[in-house]
Write a protein that binds this DNA or RNA. Structure first.
Length: 297
DNA sequence: CTCGATCCCTGGACGC
DNA sequence: TGCGTCCAGGGATCGA
């Protein structure tokens, strides 16, 4: 559930709380969500958390070491239910605490994640660079022109494109649905089928929503809390997400929920007109496939 | 390139 | 009250 605004909220909180702290020891519980548990145990102690950044839905804990020259970082993805917070050593460990970093100020940085859909990895040097290159543009840093190109050049459905971290990094189900509603784009419309003006509007709305959500410390559905334990408030501003059957804020038409790109997608069937038909889409992609086939021959 | 299906995992919702 | 069942959801992976 944590998407860009929630991760930004947590990252800012951690930057304030733990930047400059040195890690003394690491204790691991379950490790099936960690790329390389041994490397974490080996490399994290003695390193200092220089600063905490957000990278898409990841938190990037930039690390320094007295002798190591290569840049290194701890990548943390919160998945659906992850949290990373500093706690007093005396405080009992919450259930599903899987990673504990003892800090040089006597506190513990704890990773808790009931479902373990998160991810953790220690990366350094070229491997770190390589990993970061797998992801697409940050929606808040991309230019409008680049964003339009990105979407317009693809034949995937708009919802799939927004969710694809290798295209745009940081957007998840909530902010995809919310931005498509604001831009009046049906989630099943393909990027290529959109007019540039529509994509420009999507870009603007997506940025507006993300900035507003960051200002409100994210959306707290289920139980998301920032690193200082405060909930977010953006859920008050949701227009379609989790509002199936409720009236559209623009036209009162009941909001619908369908599965697009394997994810539940909420939209207004009146404001967000459906593409002509699935059949035609299939036919078109078949034609493209044949063209490519011929070209190869 | 793009798609759908499947798996991972647990807690919350729901039915009885 | 308690038990069983279903489902959500980000991402990796695989076959079509």
């Amino acid at each position: 559930m944590p998407e860009l605004p929630e991760v930004e909220t947590v990252a800012r909180g951690l930057q304030r709380e733990i930047a400059g702290r040195r890690i003394l020891t690491v204790t691991l519980g379950k490790t099936d969500f960690i790329d390389n548990p041994t490397e974490i145990e080996l490399n994290l102690p003695t390193r200092t958390i220089e600063r905490v950044e957000r990278y898409g839905k990841f938190m990037l804990l930039r690390l320094t070491h007295p002798t190591a020259k290569e840049p290194s970082a701890l990548l943390v993805h919160l998945g659906m239910t992850g949290s990373l917070m500093p706690r007093p050593v005396a405080q009992p460990h919450a259930k599903h605490t899987h990673v504990v970093f003892l800090l040089d100020d006597g506190r513990e940085l704890r990773y808790v994640d009931p479902r373990r859909f998160g991810r953790m990895a220690f990366l350094a040097g070229p491997r770190l660079q390589e990993e970061l290159l797998r992801f697409g543009a940050d929606p808040l840093e991309s230019t409008r022109e680049a964003f339009v190109d990105l979407i317009h050049s693809r034949h995937s459905r708009s919802k799939a494109l927004l969710l694809d971290q290798s295209v745009i990094r940081g957007v998840g189900n909530i902010y995809a649905d919310e931005s498509l509603w604001r831009a009046k784009i049906h989630p099943a419309k393909t990027g290529a089928s959109l007019k540039p003006a529509q994509i420009k509007l999507l870009y603007t709305k997506l940025q507006e929503i993300l900035r507003k959500a960051i200002a409100l410390r994210g959306s707290s559905i289920s139980d998301f809390l920032g690193s200082d334990g405060l909930p977010g408030d953006y859920q008050q501003h949701h227009r379609v997400y989790d509002r199936e059957g409720k009236p559209c804020f623009r036209c009162k038409t009941p909001i619908r929920r369908i599965i697009v790109a394997g994810r539940s997608s909420h939209f207004c069937p009146n404001c967000q007109k459906a593409p002509r038909s699935q059949k035609r889409r299939r036919k078109r992609s078949q034609i493209r496939r044949q063209k490519r086939h011929k070209r190869r021959k």
